[in-house]
């Protein structure tokens, strides 16, 4: 009897599960939107990111171990969207920043000048691989990796959007 009941309960639970009540939506691919003070807004999927030149950055993660992350320099992506970097990064454009948002609601900002190679050699990438493997599911499709930054707090996981703004 006991077995029958648990079987019944399992079938019931299965019927309640979204697999049966909703259209399957799990096939969605993660993407990152580039928006705000841009000339061309972009929405990049993993396959789009692979079209850019790839950069590797090594840094320690919270586990205290060194990992090699592969991705694209943020400056490269932003320039593709027509953000004022390089020769244009002067005057009022120096009051611009990017706000990066993750699907868990976490947000961090970088000043544009922190991303520009005329200002710094420190590399900041939008990574999609860790040690040549896709990022773990819990970390989402994309993660920012900041070279040499002591705390990992701005190495934001599950990135969904990058918005360029003027400080007001």
């Amino acid at each position: 009897m006991k077995i029958h009941f648990s079987l019944l309960a399992a079938v019931f639970a299965l019927l309640l599960s979204p697999i049966f009540t909703k259209a399957q939506t799990t096939a969605q691919q993660p993407s990152v939107k580039i928006k705000g003070e841009v000339v061309t807004p972009l929405e990049l999927k993993l396959s789009d990111l692979k079209q850019f030149e790839q950069t590797k950055v090594s840094r320690k993660d919270r586990d205290g171990k060194d990992h090699t992350y592969t991705g694209v320099l943020l400056s490269t992506i932003l320039q593709k969207a027509g953000v004022t970097l390089g020769r244009e990064l002067k005057g009022e454009n120096l009051t611009k920043y990017i706000i990066i948002e993750a699907s868990d609601g976490y947000q961090v900002i970088f000043a544009l000048a922190e991303l520009d190679k005329d200002f710094t050699d420190r590399q900041i990438i939008l990574a999609s691989e860790i040690d040549s493997q896709p990022l773990p599911t819990g970390d989402g499709g994309f993660r920012i990796i900041v070279q040499d930054e002591k705390k990992p707090a701005r190495c934001i996981k599950m990135v969904t959007s990058i918005t360029v703004k003027f400080a007001k």
Partner: peptide
């Protein structure tokens, strides 16, 4: 999970039961 939380909106595996 019975309730998939944000995944029902985004369809992303990362968002399951979030």
């Amino acid at each position: 999970p019975i309730d998939n939380g944000i995944q029902d909106i985004t369809g992303l595996a990362t968002d399951k039961a979030r």
